[in-house]
């Protein structure tokens, strides 16, 4: 699903984002990307959605080499990658329902179908009763669930979560994790960057640890720290 081959990204003048990273992530995997701030987790994710270009090496997603992807085709790439962020990135002027619908409308879905699908997915994340609430009327956990609903509503083969529980209390985080776990069960590859030691240790999934832009550990069923 994801292939990094000898990928290096330097931020001018000389800050290392990623350095010679080579790794494969298979379809259907659940992978934690761990490491301290500035270790390259966000760079990794931004390369995946072609928000950044690597200075060296090759990034491919779903068998597609991103270097050969034309600029105008980037939106179509992103529709196949659901993104969840620490700060939710919901459109502030749209209700929960409209936020989810937006992801459907951009793909050319008709208004009517979009509404139906969006309502379904909202009840799946347990927020059917919040469809008319605006982001600032919802708790952090609720907003994050809306953002997951939006990321998943197109049933993308890949879902990326960048610190999705970073702003949430442990109990709410647990709920979010369960949601991601369920999404993974449907066959979607899930890549989650996180600081949440407890969560990683509990889930026992593949862990890729980054430090100063390099992969320092890649364990099939790992914990947050070294075992």
């Amino acid at each position: 699903m994801i292939k990094f081959e000898d990928v290096t990204k330097i931020y001018p003048p000389s800050t290392v984002g990623l350095e010679r990273v080579t790794l494969h992530i298979e379809k259907g995997e659940f992978v934690f990307l761990v490491g301290p701030s500035g270790s390259g987790k966000s760079t990794f994710i931004r390369l995946l959605i072609k928000e950044l270009e690597p200075d060296r090496g090759r990034v491919s997603v779903g068998g597609r080499d991103l270097a050969t992807l034309r600029r105008w085709k980037i939106p179509y790439l992103r529709r196949n990658i659901g993104c969840v962020f620490q700060d939710f990135k919901l459109l502030p002027n749209k209700t929960a329902l409209e936020n989810v619908m937006y992801a459907l409308l951009v793909t050319g879905n008709a208004n009517h179908d979009s509404k139906k699908k969006a309502l379904e997915i909202l009840s799946l994340v347990g927020l059917a009763h919040k469809e008319d609430s605006f982001p600032n009327q919802m708790s952090g956990g609720e907003q994050q669930r809306v953002s997951i609903a939006r990321a998943f509503v197109n049933h993308p083969p890949l879902l990326i979560a960048d610190e999705p529980t970073g702003n949430l209390d442990p109990e709410t985080s647990m709920g979010i994790m369960q949601l991601l776990y369920r999404i993974n069960k449907t066959g979607t590859t899930v890549l989650m960057a996180t600081h949440d030691r407890e969560m990683v240790d509990r889930m026992r999934r593949r862990v890729i640890a980054l430090e100063e832009g390099k992969v320092v550990r890649d364990q099939k069923r790992g914990g947050y720290g070294e075992d």
């Binding site: 959605i49 105008w72 939106p75 179509y76 790439l77 992103r78 529709r79 993104c83 990135k89 919901l90 459109l91 937006y102 992801a103 951009v106 793909t107 939006r150």
Partner: peptide, 10 residues
């Protein structure tokens, strides 16, 4: 920015 991330075309 958010619209772009969700996959909206320009």
């Amino acid at each position: 920015e958010i619209m772009k991330l969700v996959g909206a075309t320009n």
